[in-house]
Write a protein that binds this DNA or RNA. Structure first.
Lengths: 148, 148
DNA sequence: TACAACCTTCGAGCTGCTGTAAGGTCAACA
DNA sequence: TGTTGACCTTACAGCAGCTCGAAGGTTGTA
């Protein structure tokens, strides 16, 4: 199968496949006489593995490490689960940050009574206040909610 | 104040400050005879504004737009609140993705009974299964949880 | 005078691709 | 046979938002 077909089956761009090969995440393929890459089901499996890991938020470096662990039968899988633990912890922190962010943005949104000129906008004022180090409208709002 | 002092007060790198200036997010400063940038409290305010907006997840382009709106008194603040709405929506989607990811990773983590060789690792097996398109251990676990 | 700790500019590098240019290949059709 | 059009190849530039390094100038202190 040619690269276009593989890309279609895996649901990614041909450029991504070439990039993964270049980065050592996919085995080098056989080539046709004219230099076209020839892929097999084995490559589709490898590609899906990488894409799936990417969708779980792993970096290419981590995926490479995981790939190396697959072939290295001497190590126990403690390393693998440690890596997953790391991912989970990272996601946890990200979620927390996102929630805080959401609260801040929502408070910020509530500062605005549209249809006033931008110079009067509560959002802008709040952002500017925050920059000055004073307690901004956001923080006041967030504080109120907490205190309740 | 010199750039190092400003960086310390704002809690960022000097390189970041030069980058922001280059990108038009900070006003050009006066320079000393020897070419050193001289900052004032006004610059600290501007820098904090940018950093604060960045911490809220805005891109530099969005921050530039916000900055331009500050000086343009002719527009109403509807544009500003629309921008914030966009941010909130984006964060919402991100949080949802993160939660799904967390569930998947946690299920994946549960596949592993450490101290077995990597070749026997449930995590790896599950990832490889997923790559093959079969229902992986993750999906089975996630499915069980849902069905409960 | 020497030294450390700053400052300057310029350019490269990071991640994970995406897009473009310039060219080769292949199958189908007139 | 020629000519489309859809594929393929490599190589390189670009994105965001910085960070780091080199090579050099400045400043304050011992």
């Amino acid at each position: 199968m040619l690269i276009g077909e593989l890309a279609k089956q895996a649901g990614c761009e041909t450029g991504t496949i070439r990039y993964y090969e270049q980065e050592g995440l996919l085995e080098k393929t056989a080539r046709s006489e004219s230099g076209y890459r020839r892929y097999t089901a084995r490559h589709l499996g490898q590609l899906n593995f990488v894409l799936h890991c990417r969708s779980l938020g792993m970096t290419l470096t981590e995926i490479r490490a995981l790939k190396d662990l697959q072939t290295d039968t001497t190590t126990s899988c403690a390393g693998i689960s440690a890596m997953i633990d790391l991912q989970i912890e990272r996601i946890h922190r990200q979620i927390e940050t996102m929630h805080a962010l959401e609260a801040q943005l929502t408070a910020l949104r509530d500062c605005c009574r549209e249809n006033v000129p931008a110079s009067e906008c509560g959002i802008l004022k709040s952002l500017l206040d925050a920059a000055e180090g004073g307690e901004s409208a956001i923080e006041r709002k967030a504080g109120e909610k907490k205190r309740r």
